[in-house]
């Protein structure tokens, strides 16, 4: 089910079941039917990443939607337009899963002609959004923030990830808002 909310930069694909559990964030973060803990999430959860023109990712989304609905792919996220702050000229599509099923998911993607691919763990992405991280610092620079405002953003990010993931390794993972 393609979820296109204009207020979000990203367009998502979740299963209808998952959408029906809207009050249960992170319910798609599972492996073999079992929800992951925060520790398992940091150890195993990630995504296949590839680029495409806007029309290409929209078509790929329509192709992948049935696989998300059937549960073979847990979730997909893609840009509605290239992200200028990151100096990207094409849209990025991220196809999420546990690393223990990533080969199966890659096989599906390859069937639709995806060649370029990179696997990124979510723990790597979180590191990039922590103070001093590649994404955090580029985002701050691109938005021309004062140093005071930048420090506030950095501290809020550090606190958010600490509170949500690192302080509670055995809690069921709820993901993080994007």
């Amino acid at each position: 089910m393609i979820i296109d909310r204009p207020e979000s930069w990203y367009i998502f694909i979740f299963s209808k079941d998952c959408c029906d559990r809207g009050g249960d964030p992170g319910s798609y973060i599972m492996y073999k039917g079992k929800r992951l803990t925060n520790k398992e999430y940091l150890d195993h959860w990630g995504k296949w990443v590839f680029f495409g023109e806007k029309d290409e990712v929209n078509e790929m989304a329509r192709n992948l939607d049935p696989y998300v609905e059937s549960g073979r792919i847990p979730c997909v996220k893609y840009d509605r337009a290239p992200q200028e702050w990151a100096e990207l000229e094409e849209c990025v599509m991220c196809v999420y899963c546990d690393d223990r099923q990533k080969d199966d998911v890659l096989q599906i993607l390859s069937g639709f002609g995806v060649k370029a691919k990179g696997w990124a763990y979510e723990r790597e992405v979180i590191e990039k959004w922590l103070p001093g991280g590649l994404h955090m610092e580029r985002w701050i620079k691109a938005h021309g923030m004062s140093e005071e405002a930048a420090e506030t953003i950095r501290e809020e990010s550090r606190e958010k990830f600490q509170r949500q993931f690192f302080d509670r390794p055995n809690d069921i993972c709820l993901g993080w808002e994007q």
Binding site: A86, E87, K115, V125, K128
Partner: peptide, 12 residues
């Protein structure tokens, strides 16, 4: 082997 070069900002 297949070697892919990507912007690190893609995996955000």
């Amino acid at each position: 082997d297949e070697v892919d070069f990507m912007s690190a900002f893609a995996a955000g």
